[in-house]
Design a protein around this nucleic acid. Structure first.
Lengths: 349, 349
DNA sequence: TTTAAAAATCGCAGCGCTATGATCCGATCC
DNA sequence: GGATCGGATCATAGCGCTGCGATTTTTAAA
């Protein structure tokens, strides 16, 4: 290939500037070198008090905002954490994302958000893009990912945290709880309340792996107690409407059901509404247990027995781990944190 | 200041690498220059078919992932959009954020998320950090921001979009609707249904400016029709429990109320629950209108008359504008997009 | 065939910052 | 007084990519 223009001094070319005031300006005003400013920004203790205050003044005066993009490039790691969830429309994940963002903020870490919409291929793509940001960590939802996703994540040295699920092969660290245990606890509770004809009503179970796991645990525990379970499903996303439909269907085909668990509280709420319409007494005729302890669960008629999963704790723990890792702490490989769950026994059962 | 080590050739220093395979590796394998690879990645049409396929092969073979941080630095603008909302725990904003993320993904734009928790100082800090990423755009919630926030945003050339509110002084572009109009529409609807003793029940109104605006609009429209309005408030965040408490309080102090509007459907749901407990017939004795059309609103007993704000449309429109702006389209200054709202007349009124 | 115009490709010079290892300087010790 | 030491400060050399303008190649027109 040709290579000319050797030695020929070119005219200064116009470059696009990112920002008006840079670290160099600060250094100049504070009469120190840019290195010292950089050092001050990262480890203020390592700089003398006099230099420190001069720099602080200069920053204040110039209204300097450090360029994190440049910093990220130079440090080979950006102050960003990529969080990939099915959707923040889902209150569970919203809770975790919010808790995480608030915790990470204190360490000046940014949250980059991605939605898979329950699609593994989409997740794969999001992970690829996430990695191109050289994030401080990648947070994924659940333990089920495509081969390519695992491969990509395996090759990098970026810490990976999988949240909201425990009990399967994990890439690196996992924070969450066992959904089978949720199902089992629900079943045992209903049986303990004297129920013997159980049903599990679930929405979107083909896509929501964790709801399926809860259903599995529910059935296993019931089977262990010699109690049979019928499962009713609807492909639409969780909503009260789906819950109402599922209950109505259940009462037609299985009129002697006396205990119901749902894939979550949205569905349970719909069941409650439909019971009211059909004049089915809850809990006398039918005991009901949900999952999630959503904002309405304690307030409805009757208050809903449900399982609280502590989504904010998941977020906080994930943030804590990421921050510790950045602090250079040894990353315990294959670490697992069980955030547990609580069964809230209210009047619907 | 001293400056020594001139001319002394140093030993090659160890640098931290960000990634193993770079654009240069791809260029080498594809037998083109890095510039061409870069060009191919940004504008595939500008590269010949043969070079294009060679590059594509090389990328595939090496499993190359472009470094967006480096790209962002060089281009003086990162492929990131900073979205700052009060909280994604709030279903309204979650909807918008989710819709936006999905729309922006197609253009390979990343979403950086921040939560203000309804704190202007927090917002200011988030904006500062956001700008240090040199984002393609900044999206804020509402029109009310601190002086410093406005100043920072004013100085940059980053496009700013304010969402979920219309009708005040805006920084740049605003997408949303008039909350006063929502309140007014609600009042007019109730009056049209023959109600004359109205009340507005609101949660967290001191922090939620937009709820306050709806209340203002409600009162203004009622006053215009010669109907009086009582306002009941509770400082806690919206929930069904707050709604129940507010209704119970209302019935004690103002037993002849016949029409109620709430700050949102969470509160309305609680009102509905409490009416059931108090055996108040809805809508016969009491007409009820909410705001938000949340997942349960159509399914409850009776189905809730409410106002649907189209939060996803806000997100989609914001994404569209950002993408158009990146495409170099002239940014109409002070543009306003009214996404409107719909009153859904269901059985609760 | 020659020549102009268009298309494709390339080399260069950074973007703003950080990690590294060297240097400087004042305090302490012999 | 000189040597030693540790904290503070600094100059250097990039991190991986893109925009620019120039160069080369291809195509079309003369």
């Amino acid at each position: 290939m040709g290579q000319k223009n050797l030695g020929v001094p070119r005219p200064a070319r116009q470059r696009r500037k990112m920002q008006s005031v840079t670290m160099m300006d600060v250094a100049e005003l504070a009469k120190v070198s840019p290195s010292t400013v950089s050092l001050y920004l990262r480890r203020p203790d390592a700089v003398s008090a006099s230099a420190g205050s001069a720099i602080a003044h200069a920053i204040d005066k110039l209204n300097y905002v450090p360029n994190l993009v440049a910093g990220g490039l130079a440090a080979a790691s950006s102050r960003a954490v990529s969080i990939i969830v099915p959707s923040v429309r889902n209150a569970f994940f919203a809770e975790t994302v919010a808790a995480m963002q608030v915790a990470l903020r204190k360490e000046r870490l940014q949250v980059i958000l991605g939605h898979t919409e329950y699609d593994e291929r989409e997740e794969e793509d999001l992970v690829r893009t996430a990695l191109s940001w050289a994030p401080a960590a990648v947070v994924l939802t659940g333990l089920s990912h495509s081969q390519a996703t695992r491969r990509m994540l395996g090759k990098t040295s970026v810490p990976v945290i999988e949240i909201w699920e425990l009990g399967g092969p994990q890439i690196d660290t996992a924070i969450g709880f066992h959904h089978e245990q949720v199902g089992a606890a629900t079943a045992r509770h209903l049986i303990q309340q004297g129920r013997r004809r159980l049903a599990f009503l679930g929405a979107r179970m083909h896509e929501d792996r964790r709801a399926r796991l809860r259903c599995d645990g529910f059935m296993a525990a019931a089977a262990e107690a010699g109690v049979s379970v019928d499962v009713m499903q609807h492909p639409a996303p969780s909503s009260a409407e789906v819950g109402a439909m599922l209950l109505s269907e259940t009462m037609q085909t299985l009129p002697d059901i006396d205990g119901i668990a749902t894939s979550n509280d949205h569905v349970a709420l719909g069941v409650l509404f439909e019971c009211e319409r059909l004049k089915i007494a809850v809990p006398e005729k039918l005991a009901l247990v949900g999952f999630g302890d959503l904002s309405f669960s304690a307030a409805c008629n009757p208050p809903l027995t449900t399982i609280r999963p502590s989504g904010d704790l998941i977020g906080k723990e994930a943030a804590r781990l990421i921050i510790e890792h950045m602090g250079g702490k040894a990353p315990a490989p294959q670490m697992t944190i069980d955030t547990r769950f609580t069964l809230l026994h209210r009047r619907s059962s």
